[in-house]
């Protein structure tokens, strides 16, 4: 089929908004990286251009003067503990709901899934006092537990659909051979649903690494700050100190792990998120 001139023009024209939006997405991120390597004086002189010379001073200032090192460590702990705990709690329940016939399995699933739609702000006030009573307030492990439970509905939802794709015959023959259900879950189901487990874990890890508001409420002292809180602190300080370069360095430290994960698992992440949204 021959294409008319109008169509060819249209096809070029359609690229303009696409290119503009790509710039709108990439330029601020790119510029944040550049800003992290500029001195403060240069940020004022030339906020949006290339740095004259790359210096790592901002990173060392952030690392030493603002205790970013401690925050990075806290964030890593919260993310890892939270992600593992979510799996420990979610896999058995997802398996039971999907594969074992019992009364109320549908109701239980509905209870978990509908929790995805409930605004959790209301619960944060009592949660604050509950954590305080349990001695888990201002404690990164307490925060990790709260994170893990908050991602349970999403994780159970995604994992049940993955476990549903495993052929039943495998479990049945294992049970015939006298394997206990615990062993079936651990030795057969878990390895076979690894793809789903990885997707869920990456999504949860990004969520926990990025999370801000619960950390703001449930952590007080600066030695327990997660990265999000530390950056927020530098940001509010920067209004007086104008330490923009340090702030950018903090932002870069926060975003690099996410970029790396996205570079490796781009397909999984976008698929996991769209599937999570479809059920919502």
């Amino acid at each position: 089929m021959k294409r008319s001139v109008g169509q060819i023009l249209g096809r070029t024209g359609i690229r303009i908004p696409l290119i503009l939006w790509s710039l709108a997405v990439l330029y601020p991120i790119f510029w944040m990286f550049l800003g992290a390597f500029k001195s403060n004086a240069e940020i004022y002189r030339n906020p949006w251009g290339f740095p004259e010379s790359f210096s790592f001073e901002n990173f060392t200032t952030a690392w030493t003067n603002y205790n970013i090192d401690v925050s990075v460590f806290n964030s890593l702990i919260v993310t890892a503990v939270g992600a593992i705990l979510t799996l420990i709690l979610a896999i058995p329940t997802a398996y039971a709901i999907e594969r074992i016939n019992f009364r109320g399995s549908k109701i239980l699933f509905t209870v978990y899934v509908s929790a995805m739609m409930i605004p959790m702000v209301l619960g944060w006030i009592p949660l604050f006092f509950l954590l305080s009573d349990l001695g888990l307030l201002d404690n990164i492990y307490g925060l990790a537990i709260v994170y893990a439970v908050s991602q349970l509905p999403f994780s159970i939802f995604v994992l049940t659909s993955f476990i549903g794709t495993i052929p039943k015959s495998l479990e049945e023959s294992a049970a015939m051979d006298g394997m206990s259900p615990y062993k079936v879950l651990w030795k057969i189901i878990t390895p076979l649903s690894m793809s789903g487990i990885i997707t869920v874990t990456i999504m949860n890890a990004i969520q926990f690494w990025n999370e801000y508001f619960m950390a703001l409420i449930f952590l007080n002292s600066s030695e327990n700050y997660t990265l999000a809180l530390a950056i927020d602190f530098i940001s509010s300080e920067a209004q007086y100190t104008n330490a923009w370069g340090t702030l950018f360095a903090g932002l870069v430290i926060a975003i690099v792990p996410v970029i790396i994960l996205y570079a490796i698992f781009q397909r999984r992440i976008s698929k996991g998120m769209t599937e999570g949204a479809i059920k919502g």
Binding site: P92, W124, L127, L130, S150, L152
Partner: peptide, 18 residues
């Protein structure tokens, strides 16, 4: 074993606060 520990955590940290 599969359901109760998870549900207890969910009840404590999600349902009870709500």
């Amino acid at each position: 074993f599969c359901l109760i520990p998870t549900f207890i955590m969910f009840a404590i940290f999600t349902l009870y606060p709500l």
